[in-house]
Design a protein around this nucleic acid. Sequence first.
DNA 1: AATGAATGAGGATTCATTCAT
DNA 2: CATGAATGAATCCTCATTCAT
Lengths: 194, 194, 194, 194
Amino acid sequence: MKKSKPKYNQIIEAAVIVIAENGYHASQVSKIANKAGVADGTIYLYFKNKEDILVSVFEEKMGQFIERIVEGINEKQKANEKLFTLVEMHLRQLSEDHHLAIVTQLELRQSNSALRQQINKVLKPYLAVIDEIVKEGMEENIFRDDLNIRLVRQMIFGTIDEIVTNWIMKDGKYDLVKQAPTIHTLLSNGLTVK
Amino acid sequence: MKKSKPKYNQIIEAAVIVIAENGYHASQVSKIANKAGVADGTIYLYFKNKEDILVSVFEEKMGQFIERIVEGINEKQKANEKLFTLVEMHLRQLSEDHHLAIVTQLELRQSNSALRQQINKVLKPYLAVIDEIVKEGMEENIFRDDLNIRLVRQMIFGTIDEIVTNWIMKDGKYDLVKQAPTIHTLLSNGLTVK
Amino acid sequence: MKKSKPKYNQIIEAAVIVIAENGYHASQVSKIANKAGVADGTIYLYFKNKEDILVSVFEEKMGQFIERIVEGINEKQKANEKLFTLVEMHLRQLSEDHHLAIVTQLELRQSNSALRQQINKVLKPYLAVIDEIVKEGMEENIFRDDLNIRLVRQMIFGTIDEIVTNWIMKDGKYDLVKQAPTIHTLLSNGLTVK
Amino acid sequence: MKKSKPKYNQIIEAAVIVIAENGYHASQVSKIANKAGVADGTIYLYFKNKEDILVSVFEEKMGQFIERIVEGINEKQKANEKLFTLVEMHLRQLSEDHHLAIVTQLELRQSNSALRQQINKVLKPYLAVIDEIVKEGMEENIFRDDLNIRLVRQMIFGTIDEIVTNWIMKDGKYDLVKQAPTIHTLLSNGLTVK
DNA sequence: AATGAATGAGGATTCATTCAT
DNA sequence: CATGAATGAATCCTCATTCAT
């Protein structure tokens, strides 16, 4: 966590749970405060407004999320191993924190466009990690050398994101992480018989 | 159109414009009524409630959207041609109706999860079309025979969806349709050198 | 009343009573709505916001207030009779509407400076009436010809206003109108023995 | 100053500036504390509550204000000289402390009626000084012997007060003190040709 | 004496929906 | 069918005040 203030973290953790359980619009500030064990007004000592809670949740959690993936990737040598690690850890991390998955895949998207811009900014470093893997793969001659990096990044992120969202909307009834190899193969080899 | 009542369509068209221009949360029923040239109360003669307007917008527009894609696909023989047609027409149709693209890619997602369930129901036939293409491709031995249809569908839809969303968030500043071949190649052949 | 909408007037009348009885800051919109026999939301069909109620109360009441004084003055020939009429009617009108007197003398002054500017605008015509009397008096050679009109106006208004405010703060325990002749004499002849 | 504690005075001075610059309603206790260079809580070691700060500001400043006027008056023999001195010094003192003038003429009046009662109490000695002058003038046969002291006091105070308020609302754009003779003449001789 | 983090009560306003005409 | 005036529930945020340190 960026800030070591305990109340700040209490509120962040409470917000994830309350938003996951009630949905963003039914998550009154007082409900979050209550769950965090602080007074309503205390929220505003740590956050500018209700939206800021949401952005901060995303920043904090996304920060850890990316950090861990980057660590995992750094242990790998080849771009396709790195891609596999990214897919697998993306799925694993959301798989292991159901509340967080609900918030990122469903509730966070209910935000207005101002908020969405901020969320995109937080997401940038993650997208940069994807770009980096793709570039490395092209340089290593593991990936084709004519790839449009932006489109590849959108395919990789769009695919994983859609898969996680579907899983969440099915209430996480099946094993998400187990699908990492298949997804990786799909992205690597595409649909066509060679 | 489900109903041939002219006011029904007036309201649907007004809703697309108002939501695209103002965003979901700033699109009051009275604003839509005003744009449609009817009284507020009249809305409720044609729609159960505000959510119902949104679902209906999506139903109507998605109905046409899918219909046209199915027509396009039926003219093709091979699964990979069909897939190309689907990608190209998906991009083209949203490219040509900016208002609709904003509504489907951004504003509609701000709805609560109850509404999102209904939207998914509307989306089902489209996803079924994708599934059908994949199955045909496998039978024709054009696509690999070990594909997990659900995951493939999520990759195809997730990729296109992410690409369109990014395009909209960049205010449609570049040519979307032109990217269809590259996207199709990516989905078909994946990232890896063969 | 400027507007013949009955609810508009109901709300104005309710506001005078509620504000006079509770003070401006303890006069919640819901309390005014309740007194007026309308829903809270209805207030906002007729007034922009809470401040607008206050300004409108003043506009409506001040409009009548001035109108009557002007009528009274027009029946008089000489400036000093007109001045007497102004003093007497000013006192009489506030004397006869205790609620209104509380609102104008006490509660209205708790407004912020933005509101006060608007109130001053409403007051302008009344001050103009005073100016007119003074000018006439000077032309008629009834008043001294070296008067500084602005200062005279401020003396006349300041004197009456202070007297009414003191009366209100003593809960209207004595007869205000009866003092008109003395006040008029004071303003006319000053303090000094001639 | 009632208390010789330096922080007490720091807070009083800070309050005058903060209230004059921000207006009464935007003058949070924390803003005053900040300006005074003390912690929020420290305010409550010297003042019972926020209202008490205001009353104390008025008491302290009014105390000095009256003291100086009394000194000035004591140097004069005749009641009409004393009245002139009172008018002139009233204008001069507020003229020379713009912040204080804003607070006394505008911001302090936004207080609720409970506070206003206390303010009136503080004002009493000043009104007594006016009364004294009037009585002396009557005894000296300089002023008419049939004056209603209360009304005369209200005329004198109301006139000066209204003139200062108008001056403040015009941002002190003209010379206030220069008007003392005219005001004094008006109060002494009234409007009428003799 | 001094601090300042924490408290929590309180209220204007919006807008989807109704229903008398 | 159509209207649109009226309804009223629902909530974020501020800020004076407290009290453990």
